[in-house]
Amino acid sequence: MKKREGSTLGLERIKIAKRVAEELSDGEVINLGVGIPTLIPDYLGDKKVYLQSENGLLGMGPTPDDEDINMDLISASKKPITMDTGASLFDSSDSFVMIRGGHVDLAVMGALQIDQYGEIANWAVPGKTILGVGGAMDLVAGAKRIIIASRHLAKDSSPKLVKELTFPSSGVRKADMLVTEHAVFKFTDNGTELIEILSDMSVEELRKITGADFTYGDE
């Protein structure tokens, strides 16, 4: 990701990661999905959280120096990692006892689409060969809290936040929050609520690039 750091895309990804990092609390057990969520550990400041990796580690540390790499100590993205003080190792079934059983405080994941109530589509695009689901559906079903970290628009400029999903759902369980480069949204049984604008867009401009209706303030 280093080469992208100075680009607009890179800066927007960092902005999203920084804003999500503000939502994390000391002592929480957190599972980070691929993409933008993996940037979050760089912006935690003094907060101490415990990163869970679904391939069997609680207490994931930073990337090792080259001479310390062991490809049997990797993240779920299959990258070499280290273990933090207090880390523990376990097998895949225990890892999903943790995830599915509601013992992980927060999952931060990407999404292809999110509907107005927070239902997530993050594993398959209609008409394309996507032959992977990984641990996404287990995290959607079991994490105590779910935050979606995603760019506001898809690569084809279509909005990711939509009234109804047109992509296959990842489960009936809803996300709690969506953070994009432009805004922070909260999901409730009544629909989407805009709680913060992160760019220089007005609320009206934001409505134009968002596929779902949302409330703001006292509306």
Partner: peptide
């Protein structure tokens, strides 16, 4: 799903025929 895979194999080895999970509902 990854957690269902792990649990299904665990059950296979544990003499359990199947299990109910919330993962993938809907």
């Amino acid at each position: 799903p990854q957690g269902t895979l792990a649990e299904a194999i665990r059950c296979g080895g544990a003499g359990i025929g199947g299990f109910y999970t919330k993962t993938a509902v809907g």
